[in-house]
Simulated assay, not measured.
Amino acid sequence: MEGISLVETSTLETLISEVRGLRDTVLSGKPDRYLSSSDAAAMMGFSEVWICNNKQHIGYSTIGKSIRFKVRDIEAYMEANYFKIQSKRKGK
């Protein structure tokens, strides 16, 4: 769709600022943050044994005998396994 759109100056300036912030975030090239299995367990609220037994579902790297987990992989795993159930209570 072509045409001319009118946008208030303050709205346009806000949008430009937000796009610049996103651009800076994307271009910053921050490396992934890795956690040990004990730190991953603390983040997820599970035992370290559970983390090690389920590492193939979360995603992991090995460095020597050490296992490391990306923070974003842990967050993605938790989000993918999040279920919200709405209760159907009578009278409420």
Rank of each mutant, 00 (worst) to 15 (best):
E2G: 10
E2A: 15
E2Y: 01
I4K: 10
I4H: 02
I4Y: 06
I4E: 01
S5E: 04
S5V: 15
L6G: 05
L6V: 13
L6H: 10
V7N: 03
V7G: 02
E8G: 04
T9E: 15
T9D: 14
T11M: 09
T11K: 11
T11I: 14
L12S: 04
L12E: 02
E13C: 04
T14W: 03
T14L: 14
T14I: 10
L15V: 13
L15T: 07
S17C: 03
V19S: 07
V19Y: 14
R20V: 02
R20T: 00
R20C: 00
R20E: 03
R23Q: 08
T25E: 15
S28I: 03
S28A: 15
G29E: 12
K30S: 13
K30C: 05
D32N: 12
D32M: 06
R33P: 00
Y34L: 14
L35E: 01
S36G: 06
S37Y: 06
A40G: 14
A42V: 07
A42Q: 14
A42P: 00
A42L: 13
M44H: 09
G45N: 03
F46W: 09
F46M: 11
S47N: 07
S47F: 08
S47E: 10
E48T: 08
V49K: 15
V49C: 09
I51P: 00
C52R: 15
N53I: 00
N54F: 09
I58F: 07
Y60Q: 05
Y60H: 15
S61Y: 10
S61N: 05
S61I: 04
S61H: 11
T62K: 15
T62D: 00
I63N: 08
I63A: 09
G64N: 03
I67W: 02
I67S: 01
I67A: 01
R68M: 05
R68L: 13
R68D: 00
F69A: 05
F69G: 03
K70E: 04
K70A: 09
K70N: 03
K70S: 05
V71C: 06
R72Q: 11
E75I: 14
E75A: 12
E75T: 12
E75M: 11
E75D: 06
A76M: 11
M78N: 02
A80N: 11
A80M: 04
A80Q: 08
N81G: 04
F83R: 09
K84Q: 11
K84C: 07
I85A: 06
I85V: 10
I85Y: 05
Q86Y: 08
Q86I: 13
R89Y: 03
G91F: 11
K92E: 06
K92D: 04
